[in-house]
């Protein structure tokens, strides 16, 4: 990856990248080395590779919730546009909410997934600084949600299943966003998605940031990648409320129970999509393949369900969310 600062990674991953870079440097030396020097470099490389393997196992084998949050935001992590490029054929982007403007923070369009015509959508974060600014770092405005709803209604009319890729820190908290009805837009999307008469798969590929995620996140299947999270509030925001210190985000990440395993245990998510060891960014091709397999499996299952039954199941799943007790009144 040229032009990418390879050390721009979470702190826990840095020693690994440093070691990898060292090994790469040694390989370059190896290419020009001969005789005894060559043999000595080869020995060194194999030693370092053993160290690397050990290091990776100790780091990636013991990820705490905050580590996973950082992986979900990793600068090299595959984004919705990557998944679309790799997994979706003949993607036809559909822009605009027909009311105010086109919000680049949400991408929508027709696509062909493994021979199935679908509507694809997702939060767009952008990779380069220019892209990231264009799509507001994945924080949508009301027009983004209204665009998504418009395209979902089109999908319903055309009987196309919907695949929604979730990856946002949250809906944008700004003056204009409030003026144009951020809460109204999200509320209407949530309500309408609960009753759209086509299968909807939601897959959280990175950050499931609160209402901004849910705004394109109601459906029949709730899938989440191994190093993604979904939360009612960002760990930083939670830490600021609890301890008046955003730096305690790692503690907040623990108390919020936001990891995929927690979310399954709490009865919200349905299945975890595995990632290559150390995170999707370390072997994106493997990540795309996992996502392809899981989406295909769930899509096939959902497409076989008669629509009335699908609606019934979607409602029941939503109605079952939440934990409480019933005591004598």
């Amino acid at each position: 990856m040229s032009g990418v600062d390879r050390l721009n990674v979470p702190e826990f991953e840095r020693p690994i990248v440093e070691l990898e870079m060292k090994i790469e440097g040694m390989r370059m030396d190896l290419a020009t080395a001969i005789g005894e020097r060559k043999a000595s470099i080869e020995t060194d490389i194999s030693e370092f590779e053993k160290d690397l393997k050990k290091l990776m196992e100790s780091v990636f084998g013991n990820l705490d919730p905050w580590d996973r949050v950082q992986l979900s935001r990793h600068p090299n992590r595959p984004l919705v546009t990557d998944y679309i490029n790799v997994l979706i054929d003949d993607f036809q982007e559909l822009k605009g909410d027909r009311a105010y403007k086109d919000d680049a923070a949400i991408v929508c369009g027709f696509g062909t997934f493994e021979g199935n015509k679908v509507m694809v959508m997702g939060h767009r974060k952008g990779r380069t600084l220019k892209e990231r600014l264009e799509c507001n770092f994945g924080c949508a405005h009301p027009e983004g949600y209204r665009k998504a709803l418009r395209k979902m209604k089109l999908a319903e009319k055309l009987n196309l299943p919907i695949i929604s890729f979730i990856n946002t820190p949250g809906a944008y908290p700004g003056i204009e966003a409030e003026e144009r009805g951020q809460s109204q837009a999200i509320a209407e999307n949530i309500r309408e998605m609960s009753g759209l008469r086509v299968p909807i798969i939601t897959l959280t590929i990175g950050e499931g940031g609160s209402g901004g995620a849910l705004g394109i996140g109601v459906g029949d299947r709730y899938l989440i990648m191994e190093n993604a999270y979904y939360s009612v509030i960002s760990p930083e925001g939670c830490a600021a409320i609890l301890w008046h210190d955003a730096k305690k985000a790692s503690d907040a990440a623990r108390v919020l129970r936001l990891t995929p395993n927690d979310l399954i245990e709490l009865g919200i998510m349905d299945e975890i999509v595995p990632e290559p060891f150390g995170g999707a960014h370390r072997d994106p091709r493997k990540a795309y393949e996992f996502v392809r397999q899981y989406l295909l499996k769930h899509l096939a299952e959902l497409m076989a369900i008669p629509v009335e039954q699908l609606m019934d199941q979607r409602y029941k799943k939503l109605r079952g969310m939440g934990k409480y007790i019933e005591v004598a009144a």
């Binding site: 939360s231 009612v232 709490l266």
Partner: peptide
């Protein structure tokens, strides 16, 4: 808003309540 102390369960109450309201309105 959504009660932080119940985490993701609170967040999805948004979807649960909206779905029930939709059914009534429809």
């Amino acid at each position: 808003g959504a009660r932080m102390e119940e985490g993701i369960l609170s967040l999805f109450q948004m979807a649960k309540t909206s779905a029930a309201i939709k059914r009534l309105q429809d």
